[in-house]
Design a binder for these strands. Structure first.
Ligand SMILES: [Mn+2]
Ligand SMILES: [Mn+2]
Ligand SMILES: [Mn+2]
Ligand SMILES: [Mn+2]
Lengths: 219, 219
DNA sequence: GTTTAAATTTAGACAAATCTAAAAAATATT
DNA sequence: AATATTTTTTAGATTTGTCTAAATTTAAAC
């Protein structure tokens, strides 16, 4: 039930990789973890012995149910801590990842559930990624790009697909971040720019390039 | 500048031990860390090589300035996290130590300084132990036992010297904890019991046995 | 002052996690 | 199908932190 920080990093990364391609390869995992293929093979044997993944030599591998369950708990911790750092400690979303990379290994389940409650059960982290609940369930709300949103519908920002500091600067200036409630008031077909009402009062304008990087969901 | 979790635990424990007796012994440290004397000797060599302590074979050891500075930063983290857990996440002071034992090893200095600010720069942890500031300085306020406090002087609870769950239960019932402001309104010489005014309104009575375990400082 | 006991250190071993270099297996290319 | 290339695994070494058992030093008792 408790794994080393290193094992947890492996579990988490395998989980992410296998959500894209069904079977994960040694080299892909080594690259993702900034380690060497030989180290990955070593760890795979240990994880297999602990019955956390399915693995046959030379044939790739993937987490079994037990492994997935463990991975989701680590992802939950990572994202809740990120939310805490941004929401309560005023960090920028571009500076929290490394700290969360350490905090996610704090073992107490009770601690993380209390933190969840303290933060008022956020549904997405500062990067818009979903935070699983204490049972490991991801709430899925369909996201759509802001440019697809009908006029006058109130939506909430759930993710930004391009997380550069240039984008961050622009969004901070315009007061847009994850969780912001907004409404598309006007679309200009000339350049596909949008006029938005933010938090029920502020009116701002954003370009097509920005609008296609902002994902939202129903309020 | 960055040490392993294990080294940090050693530094912290040596710091605590040498504040009581000038020179620390191998066995004392082994006992405090729940490890073996041989392991301590091994680690001492490494800490000496890293110039964190003064050590001569068979003659005991103690931290040098560098070692003390490092130890204080870890103690700062430990106590700030404890404060966070009690104040924000509603844990009891009797359940936070183990979690803080892990959290104290989160490396970011910026994180801990932001946490300090978020918590409004607390001066003592939930057990009444002083929290050093970001430069490692302990604010020293002279503490005295509640039974020594003159009548009608407003003081603040700074520590409880007996931290049993029986004591915790009693104090929680009477609404007393670290930071509580109170005033001694009456002393009964018959049994040395005290009548206190808490937070400027509540009047309660406590026994001699309780009063001698409560340390306070000037408001 | 010897002898005995306690404290400390060393020697040697082990587990976890990593690496480099070499071998083996699976793919791709001609 | 034979050869070349890429991917993966193994072999062997290293680092960190730990342990037990034995040796050494210091301190205590007689
Ligand atoms: Mn991590
Ligand atoms: Mn994130
Ligand atoms: Mn610790
Ligand atoms: Mn404490």
């Amino acid at each position: 039930m408790k794994y080393s920080a290193s094992k947890e990093n492996y579990l988490k990364e395998i989980f992410h990789l296998q959500s894209q391609q069904n079977m994960v390869t040694t080299n892909a995992l080594a690259a993702a973890l900034h380690t060497k293929a030989a180290s990955v093979t070593d760890m795979l044997k240990k994880l297999k012995t602990q019955k956390l993944l399915l693995y046959e030599k030379y044939k790739g591998f993937k987490l079994n149910n037990e492994g997935k369950k463990a991975a989701v708990q680590i992802i939950r911790k990572h994202r809740l801590w990120e939310f805490f750092l941004v929401e309560k400690l005023q960090f920028g979303w571009d500076e929290v990842h490394e700290m969360a990379e350490e905090l996610e290994h704090i073992s107490s389940k009770k601690l993380i559930d209390r933190l969840d409650s303290f933060l008022d059960f956020p549904k997405t982290d500062p990067h818009g990624d979903p935070i699983p609940d204490c049972n490991g369930k991801f709430s899925e709300r369909r996201q759509l790009a802001l440019r697809e949103v009908p006029i006058n519908k109130i939506v909430q920002v759930s993710a930004i697909t391009e997380q550069t500091s240039a984008m961050l600067e622009l969004l901070q200036h315009k007061n847009i971040r994850i969780g912001t409630k907004l409404e598309v008031k006007k679309k200009f077909p000339f350049d596909n720019s949008l006029e938005l009402k933010i938090k029920n009062h502020l009116i701002i304008t954003i370009s097509e390039q920005v609008a296609e990087k902002i994902l939202v969901h129903d309020d």
